[in-house]
Design a protein around this nucleic acid. Structure first.
Lengths: 121, 121
DNA sequence: CTAAGTACAACGACAGACGTAGTAAAGATA
DNA sequence: TATCTTTACTACGTCTGTCGTTGTACTTAG
């Protein structure tokens, strides 16, 4: 199980990405994250709702009440234009981050080969 | 420029990875990180030295004084066996993290969900 | 009736990153 | 000679996302 701290700051992006596929609410988004990662990552409730608060404050999402006739009333969320813009920025950032971290964490086959070669010089 | 918060928690791993190639000291490691990422990421001084403190406390590195005949005396760092073990764990974690985040940030055509299953991680 | 699942909110604590400042020694420049 | 730049740290306080804990409330299954 990946810890949330490992991918700190990307929870907002995960939520925006899911909301970019359609409006949803807390519990459904939480389940979706767990399902899509095959249970390898899940967002904590407190993290989830504090993320909603932050995203609202930043104008990246809008909340509206659901019209459930049964069950407890849900709060639905809709991504805004600013949210879509932010999402795209973070998607680009992630692509760069992957490359940067790959170069620094090491541990890849190719890297070992190069190091071995260098050591033998 | 990638922010340190984006890759929070991986600074320790970066340092351990570099030290796994050979002993080094603060400034050299800082430069190496900047160079290897083509300037796309750099570690702040305070972050660097607080990382050293943490790594020492965890027994992942050992410090020893350099024997420079000129210039200010440096503190060199050497990775320990525990450090190597931790590094390998984090390298594995990173491979999983990449797949997990790829699946959730979106913006790419979904090859990754299949990869997650195929990778058997 | 009770337990489990759904759907949130409030509060405080923690840890890594970071801004600011200060210390110190050497070499380069004017 | 003076000072500016580079190297090499240490100390201290702040910020922010995450998370543990607790509480509330409504619904369905057994």
């Amino acid at each position: 199980m990946i810890s949330s701290d490992t991918i700190r700051g990307y929870n907002d992006t995960f939520l925006l990405s899911l909301l970019s596929e359609g409006d949803s609410y807390g519990y459904a988004l939480s389940k979706e994250i767990k399902d899509r990662t095959d249970g390898k990552y899940s967002i904590k409730e407190t993290t989830l709702y504090s993320a909603f608060t932050r995203l609202k404050k930043n104008g990246f999402i809008e909340a509206y009440p659901g019209d459930e006739t049964q069950g407890r009333k849900r709060t639905y969320y809709r991504i805004t234009k600013d949210g879509i813009h932010y999402l795209k920025e973070k998607q680009k950032e992630w692509e760069i981050t992957k490359i940067v971290v790959d170069q620094l964490v090491g541990g890849k086959k190719g890297e070992y080969y190069k190091r071995l070669h260098r050591a033998n010089l």
